[in-house]
């Protein structure tokens, strides 16, 4: 069986096939695949017997359920007020410079996607960012270079 198909089947077995299990199943797919492709959404719809358009409509509501191809590591920089005041732009520039991508883009090797997001709940340690589920706070351009270098070397 296609790996995505079997992933979805396993997730549906785990969480259930009711409408209220849709989010956990989609989250599971995103956890593994980083984003919901057209194919994944159709398979989720089929597996859970939910109209495909509804799956699409629900997925696009949630900013953490990416529907565009994304890299292995999704970097989310907080752009809300405190982080904006405490230098999130410098962070962005540093990352853009290092990865040679603009905000919203993915590196050609599909390793990194750079996104902005809203308040992460770490304002007292601004600026904050997420790489996948991991939080980094009080990030400076120097620190972010170090962090990303580690990701590049995969030694995290």
């Amino acid at each position: 069986m296609n790996p995505i198909k079997s992933l979805i089947k396993d997730l549906a077995d785990l969480h259930g096939r009711h409408r209220e299990n849709l989010l956990p199943v989609m989250q599971g797919v995103v956890q593994k695949e980083k984003f919901l492709s057209e194919y994944s959404m159709i398979e989720i719809a089929r597996e859970m017997d939910i109209p495909a358009a509804e799956v699409f409509g629900t997925a696009t509501f949630y900013s953490f359920l990416e529907t565009k191809p994304a890299g292995k590591y999704i970097i989310r920089i907080c752009k809300t007020i405190t982080c904006a005041m405490k230098g999130k732009n410098q962070l962005l520039f540093a990352i853009q410079d290092m990865l040679k991508i603009k905000t919203g883009e993915t590196t050609p090797d599909k390793r990194f996607t750079l996104l902005e997001t809203n308040c992460l709940g770490w304002c007292h340690k601004a600026p904050a960012m997420l790489i996948n589920d991991d939080v980094y706070t009080e990030v400076t351009p120097e620190k972010v270079r170090e962090i990303l270098t580690n990701y590049m070397k995969e030694n995290i």
Binding site: P51, A53, E54, G57, T60, F61
Partner: peptide, 10 residues
Amino acid sequence: GVNALTVAYK
């Protein structure tokens, strides 16, 4: 009961 249309994005 067709659900060809949906609300998307926010």
